[in-house]
């Protein structure tokens, strides 16, 4: 497939200016990036074959400034709900999120975001005593990538500026409590949009049980496994992951 023509603009959402990458023709699709990289990637190319993909940067990531009131997952989730209103012009839109972005999609849906369908890939958030996410913050960059990816050639190019900002903002959001929302499983049933939880078969960062807890508590949700993929399934296996997501969205 030919690469989509990606444009970079800014989106103003209630006074917060977000850098947005977008491409493709079709109904709007909101993509919420993972904690590693905010730019375009081959997986988004595949989604852009069917949708107008709008991928905003979460404040604090990439080139997007951090407003002083944005400190927690809760703050970003409310902001994402506002972003969805702008992107969908008030109508419900399909939303896909990867890792941190998947979790934010679920949390935004709980806060009334107008989502028609939600796909969360490798979403943290579930709390399973005795089965925490692996502490990659304690690792060297090399060890971290080996933990998160099956295919190291799939690791996206990230500038040093972005890498430093992305890691710092991730820490701000998930350091404590560590990648969990202990109440999520008691609330997640309130998401009414059909929801797909996708999981890399070889996720060494977050056990599949986390996906199972999310799917089991959703009112209209299921878990799908992406073969031969690590935690960042959409980067490790863009074709297989895109097929699963596109099938779910159509």
């Amino acid at each position: 497939m030919a690469q989509a023509a990606v444009t970079q603009t800014t989106l103003d959402v209630r006074g917060v200016s977000l850098v947005v990458h977008q491409a493709g023709e079709g109904p709007p699709l909101l993509y919420l990036h993972d904690e590693l990289s905010t730019g375009w990637n081959p997986f988004l190319d595949l989604l852009a074959g069917r949708f107008h993909v709008v991928a905003p940067e979460i404040p604090g990531f990439g080139d997007t400034a951090l407003p002083d009131w944005v400190e927690t997952i809760d703050d970003v989730a409310f902001l994402v709900a506002d972003v969805a209103d702008v992107v969908g012009s008030g109508a419900p839109i399909a939303t896909v999120g990867a890792s941190l972005g998947g979790w934010l999609a679920l949390e935004a849906a709980l806060r009334g975001a107008a989502f028609s369908r939600v796909a969360a890939i490798g979403s943290p958030g579930a709390y399973i005593p005795g089965d925490p996410p692996t502490d990659y913050f304690f690792m060297t960059p090399e060890e971290r990538l080996a933990l998160l990816f099956n295919d190291l050639s799939a690791v996206p190019e990230i500038s040093e500026d972005h890498s430093v900002r992305n890691q710092a903002m991730t820490a701000r959001l998930v350091w404590q409590p560590r990648y969990v929302s202990p109440k999520l499983e008691h609330r997640i049933h309130r998401i009414t949009a059909p929801t797909l939880v996708a999981w890399g078969n070889d996720d060494r960062f977050l056990s599949r049980a986390h996906g199972q807890v999310l799917a089991a508590n959703l009112s209209a949700g299921s878990l799908t496994i992406v073969p031969n993929a690590g935690h960042f399934a959409a980067l490790d296996q863009p074709d297989a992951t895109a097929k699963i997501i596109l099938d779910f969205l159509s």
Partner: peptide, 21 residues
């Protein structure tokens, strides 16, 4: 100690963090 243990993300300012790795 491994250096990420000494400089967890966000601990240093953006400018200082860039040199550290």
């Amino acid at each position: 100690r491994p250096w990420p243990v000494f400089f967890p993300p966000g601990y240093l300012s953006e400018t200082s963090a860039k040199g550290v790795s």
